[in-house]
Computed example of a mutant assay.
Amino acid sequence: MKFSLLGNIIDFLFPRYCAICDERLLGTEEMLCATCLQDLPITPTWEAPYENNMAKMFWGRIPIEKSVALFYYHSHSNPSYIIYKLKYHHRPDTGNYLGRLIASKGIESDFFKDIDAIIPIPITKSRRKTRGYNQSEEIARGIQERTHLPIITDAIRRVTFTESQTQKDRWQRLENVKHVFQLSDTYHDKDGKHPITDLAGKHLLIVDDVCTTGATLISCCEELQKAGKMKFSIATIGWAAE
Rank of each mutant, 00 (worst) to 15 (best):
L204P: 07
T197K: 09
Y73G: 15
I82Q: 09
A241H: 06
D198P: 00
K85Q: 13
L5V: 09
L70R: 02
Y133F: 11
T94F: 12
R100K: 13
T28P: 04
W239R: 07
E108N: 06
Y73L: 02
L13D: 05
S164H: 04
F71E: 10
F112K: 10
A55C: 11
T186H: 08
D191R: 10
G7F: 02
A235V: 04
P92N: 12
S184R: 03
K87D: 11
L5Q: 08
A34V: 09
E65Y: 02
T160A: 09
A241N: 10
E145V: 05
L70I: 05
G192Y: 01
P49M: 07
V210D: 12
T166R: 05
Y133P: 12
L101V: 03
A240R: 01
E65C: 09
A240S: 14
D93N: 06
R61P: 14
P195I: 01
Y84F: 05
T147P: 13
Q167V: 06
I206T: 11
F232I: 05
I10T: 12
E137D: 11
L98R: 03
I10L: 12
F161S: 15
T213S: 13
G99N: 06
R173W: 07
L149V: 06
F58K: 04
I102N: 03
R127W: 00
M57F: 01
